[in-house]
């Protein structure tokens, strides 16, 4: 796939659709091991992000990502706001001047996003946070030649499900210690939706 501004916008639209229809579920997940606002936060942020990018004419994918970053940063709040904001900001910086954005560019962008998030949140893989989804996805994108969209979605989904067995050491779930086990991480779930949306756009572009 090659990503143009249309695909970038479509990605956000699809991600928003998934988040809106799973808003309650995300909140339930966050009630189990967090403070019960993740669905609300993501819904608020992506609603605004979609409204912004759907209503704007863009020259570059980098500009789309930059606007998404700004909106998420100023609308989500909580832990996920700065993280998703950082992710899109780093992606925007990475794909600057790339037009169209190739698979290789996107792989670099996701890796940059991952590194930015790790730095911002000081979490490593295996701490039961959204990093646990971004990490394998970044690896998958970097290693694959001609990656398939289905595999991308599968990778993200498996990673999300694997957070269930982890005892959290970062984020609010860490306060629960052992009791955090047995629940899927909410941020990993919203990150899965993001990559599911990307896979969807990817499929259409293939």
């Amino acid at each position: 796939m090659e990503m143009k501004t249309e695909q970038a916008v479509a990605w956000i639209e699809k991600a928003n659709a998934l988040i809106q229809s799973n808003k309650e579920y995300l909140t339930e997940l966050d009630q189990a091991i967090g403070d019960g606002d993740h669905g609300l936060n993501m819904s608020r942020g992506f609603q605004e992000a979609e409204a912004k990018v759907s209503g704007t004419d863009y020259d570059t994918v980098a500009d789309v990502f930059k606007d998404v970053a700004t909106v998420l940063m100023s609308k989500i709040g909580g832990a996920s706001g700065p993280l998703y904001g950082t992710a899109f900001l780093k992606m925007s910086m990475t794909v600057k001047d790339k037009d169209p954005v190739t698979e290789a560019n996107l792989a670099d962008a996701v890796e940059a996003a991952l590194n930015g998030m790790k730095q911002r949140g000081k979490a490593e893989q295996g701490e039961k946070t959204m990093i646990d989804v971004w990490h394998p996805v970044a690896d998958f994108l970097k290693n694959g030649q001609n990656v398939q969209a289905d595999k991308l979605e599968e990778t993200a989904e498996r990673a999300m499900n694997e957070t269930k067995d982890i005892v959290a050491t970062k984020g609010r779930a860490a306060y629960l210690q052992e009791r955090s086990k047995g629940h899927v991480d909410p941020g990993s779930t919203s990150s899965f939706y993001l990559f599911q949306a990307l896979a969807d756009v990817w499929k259409k572009g293939e």
């Binding site: 091991i33 967090g34 403070d35 019960g36 606002d37 609300l40 609010r172 306060y175 629960l176 009791r179």
Partner: peptide, 29 residues
């Protein structure tokens, strides 16, 4: 109950308490 979610953050029996609670409706210790 967070207004936007409308659901209690956890449920407790009539004779139960959560020790080690935070201030965000997270379950306690």
């Amino acid at each position: 109950i967070v207004p936007g979610s409308g659901k209690p953050s956890f449920t407790l029996e009539e004779d139960e308490m959560e020790v080690g609670i935070g201030i965000h409706g997270e379950p306690g210790i």
